[in-house]
């Protein structure tokens, strides 16, 4: 079957989709977006978390045919998604404030030696992405995309979460490397940076 939907703001079409394929498979194998991860394919690990019409879901449990006409945001689109949000949800619209903000994050990234320009086409990262790097929340990184999507949505809903709130919101995302402490640090860091007055 054919499936049309929007991924990270772009219209996409997949052909010859087997009816039993999941959204995760279509993203990874048909759309060149392998950022969403295939760790369990049974909704137990959260590595494949994407936003489906804004709602975090396990993409492994969404049948491909169910996303017809809907909007999906994956980790690959998270930076743009966060940028658009910070300028009031104008999709694709320019927004001076958020651009400044984004550059602010980028500068912090350079400070913390996260790498050189040219490694990655991304001039900017979402605040939560930067915080994961800075806090040491990434080891093997396989759980990271799902955790980023879930954490970003948490901070969108609840800008100042308590530790218990963070744990509850991320309880559907397994990590085997870190023992979660650095992930807690990363979310706290992103929340703290988010609440800093602009320009600081």
């Amino acid at each position: 079957m054919r499936v049309n939907f929007t991924v990270n703001g772009r219209k996409q079409e997949a052909d010859d989709v087997w009816e039993g394929e999941s959204l995760l498979y279509v993203l990874r194998e048909r759309m060149g977006l392998p950022g969403s991860k295939n760790a369990c394919e049974q909704g137990e690990c959260g590595s494949c978390t994407v936003r489906l019409d804004g709602v975090p879901v396990c993409s492994c449990l969404v049948a491909a045919g169910q996303v017809e006409g809907r909007e999906v945001v994956t980790v690959e689109g998270l930076a743009d998604f966060a940028k658009n949000r910070s300028c009031g949800g104008h999709e694709g619209g320019a927004c001076g404030t958020s651009l400044q903000e984004a550059q602010g994050w980028s500068a912090k990234g350079t400070d913390s030696q996260t790498g050189e320009g040219g490694i990655s086409p991304h001039a900017t990262l979402a605040p939560i992405q930067q915080a994961f790097i800075d806090a040491g929340a990434v080891q093997c990184g396989f759980c990271t995309p799902g955790l980023l999507v879930a954490s970003d949505e948490l901070l969108e809903r609840n800008p100042n979460p308590s530790d218990a709130d963070i744990r509850e919101a991320l309880s559907g995302n397994l990590c085997r490397c870190t023992g979660y402490e650095k992930i807690m640090d990363a979310v706290r860091l992103a929340a703290a940076r988010q609440s800093e007055p602009e320009g600081v």
Binding site: L33, P34, G35, S36, T74, V75, E76, L78, A79, G109, T114, G115, I119, S120, H122, L125, Q129, Q130, F132, I133, V138, G141, T144, P145, L148
Partner: peptide, 9 residues
């Protein structure tokens, strides 16, 4: 490899 890992690349 941090940036690549947080961007899904």
């Amino acid at each position: 490899d941090g940036i690549l890992k947080v961007t899904g690349e």
